[in-house]
């Protein structure tokens, strides 16, 4: 039996007295696109950020391709280099050109030679449709362009899976489409993706599984079309009625 790409078991997370995640069991299989939805404060971003341990889990297990990332013997940096992450606020490095944004970690983490790193970077820039921007600085790009560069930056590490933390929430509405198009293309190529999002259309179209979270627990999960059209729980119904 091959391990899930992401396997979360009994995950708890609390900040002081405040419990954000109250026992999450969750998994993403290789090649799957799993979308996580829920009201703000439901813990969905915290769950995503626990997967590469940007947040330290309080209790529970997180296995990435069968490897426990909370184990002290696990090389966390090596694991992270195989898990691409895209942030709501893009988090491009503002002091570096687009090309340098894409080559920095390749060279520092993967130890790639400059020529190789640049070639990988250019391939990924082409993929997100921004080849002509390689010498621009992030401040000169629109939000949508910045997010596509951020996706290209993550892809340049040749990750096994990608985490998206509300990738379109900080974008002007007319720029959302370009970013979603890139993500759809990735899904079509078979990339394993975990996407925290409010884009129900995206979830329905490309998602293999939809997970609805509320108040720190997984309320309901299933085929996106199923969950969106026939939600089983009252909380899911009430949330969907507000966003759809």
């Amino acid at each position: 039996m091959t391990a899930s790409a992401i396997e979360v078991r009994g995950l708890h997370k609390h900040y002081g007295q405040h419990e954000v995640l109250k026992g999450i069991d969750f998994h993403v299989d290789a090649g799957q696109v799993v979308c996580v939805i829920g009201p703000s404060g439901s813990g969905k971003s915290t769950l995503l950020r626990c997967v590469n341990r940007l947040e330290e889990p309080s209790a529970g297990e997180i296995l990435i391709e069968g490897v426990d990332i909370c184990d002290r013997r696990t090389d966390l940096d090596e694991m992270r280099s195989r898990i691409g992450m895209v942030f709501q606020q893009f988090n491009l490095f503002p002091h570096l050109s687009v090309l340098k944004n894409l080559t920095l970690a390749q060279r520092s983490v993967r130890g790639r030679a400059k020529e190789e790193a640049v070639e990988v970077a250019r391939q990924n820039l082409a993929k997100v449709g921004l080849s002509e921007k390689e010498s621009a600085y992030p401040a000169h790009l629109s939000g949508g362009q910045q997010q596509r560069v951020a996706i290209a930056r993550a892809l340049s590490m040749n990750p096994d899976m990608m985490l998206f933390d509300e990738p379109t929430s900080a974008l002007d509405p007319e720029l959302v489409g370009d970013v979603l198009a890139v993500m759809k293309e990735l899904a079509r190529e078979g990339m394993t993706m975990m996407v925290v999002t409010h884009e129900m259309g995206f979830a329905r179209e490309v998602g293999d599984k939809l997970v609805f979270m509320d108040d720190g627990i997984v309320v309901e999960e299933g085929r996106p079309a199923e969950v969106l059209s026939h939600p089983q729980h009252e909380r899911t119904r009430s949330f969907l009625s507000k966003v759809l």
């Binding site: 090596e78 992270r80 280099s81 992450m85 942030f87 988090n91 520092s108 983490v109």
Partner: peptide
């Protein structure tokens, strides 16, 4: 977010 982005790339 700058530190998080760098660390998430494995740096």
């Amino acid at each position: 977010g700058q530190t998080e982005a760098a660390r998430s790339l494995g740096m």
